[in-house]
Computed example of a mutant assay.
Amino acid sequence: MTGRWERILSRYGQTITLYRQGQEEGTACRAFLQPVLEKGADFFQRQPTPLGLVRQDRWICLGGPDMALDELDGGYIAWGNQIFTVRSAQPVYLGDRLVYWWGLLAVRD
């Protein structure tokens, strides 16, 4: 299962960079980043896109087992010209094996 997930990430995922607290050099990884869509959000936090209104302050991140989003210790994630802080992170297991990381990200100002 992890081999398939890594092939999907390498083909369709975005290249992101993980920066741990106190480290100047980041680690490049592949992940899926998508904005969180909510119906009850305040209007000023939404921006029109071809797919509809999108909240710009919260994103979902799905990444490989090597990402360890809970170990950034105040670090951040960079993607393009966006900088994200990890609000919440959960490892997802299949049996005893870590398959991927799920993270809720906030756009850092």
Rank of each mutant, 00 (worst) to 15 (best):
C29K: 14
Q45T: 03
R58Q: 06
A28K: 15
L33E: 08
T85K: 13
T2G: 13
L98V: 09
G22E: 01
V54S: 11
G64S: 14
Q34V: 05
Y19V: 07
G3Q: 11
F43C: 12
F43S: 12
Y12D: 07
Y76C: 07
I16L: 15
Q14R: 14
E6N: 14
Q34M: 12
P35V: 01
G22S: 01
Q23I: 05
R11Q: 12
T49M: 09
W5Y: 10
L98M: 11
S10T: 04
V86N: 02
G52P: 12
L98N: 07
L98Y: 11
D96I: 00
A89K: 10
Q14L: 14
G95K: 09
G26Q: 05
M67N: 03
N81W: 13
F43K: 12
F84Q: 04
L51P: 02
M1W: 07
L98G: 01
R46W: 00
Y100T: 01
Y100A: 04
F84H: 06
A41I: 05
F43V: 11
K39G: 02
G64Y: 02
G13R: 12
Q82T: 05
W102E: 06
E24C: 06
R30E: 00
V86L: 00
P91S: 07
N81F: 13
L53C: 03
D70A: 11
G13F: 11
R30V: 04
W79N: 03
L51K: 09
G95L: 00
Q23G: 01
V99N: 09
V99S: 08
S88I: 02
M67E: 04
G75K: 05
L9E: 05
D42S: 12
I77N: 09
I77L: 15
A89T: 04
R46H: 02
V92G: 08
S88R: 15
R20T: 03
A28D: 03
L37G: 01
T15P: 14
N81G: 07
I16S: 04
G22T: 01
R97E: 04
G13M: 11
G80T: 02
G52V: 01
V99W: 14
F44I: 13
Q82E: 09
V107D: 02
P50E: 09
L105G: 00
Q23F: 13
D57I: 05
G95I: 01
R4T: 03
T27K: 13
G40F: 12
N81K: 14
T15C: 15
W101R: 08
M67T: 04
P35I: 01
P91G: 09
F32M: 14
A41H: 09
D66F: 08
A106I: 01
N81I: 11
D57T: 10
L53V: 05
V107Q: 10
D70F: 05
T49G: 13
Q47V: 15
R46P: 04
Q14K: 15
R58E: 03
Q56A: 06
F84P: 09
Q47S: 13
Y12H: 10
S88W: 13
G13D: 00
V54A: 09
G64C: 06
G26F: 05
L51M: 11
L105N: 02
I83D: 02
D96T: 07
I16M: 10
W101E: 02
G40L: 10
L9Q: 10
G26E: 01
W59T: 00
P48F: 05
W101P: 00
W59P: 07
R46D: 03
L33N: 07
V92E: 15
L98I: 11
M1H: 10
W102C: 07
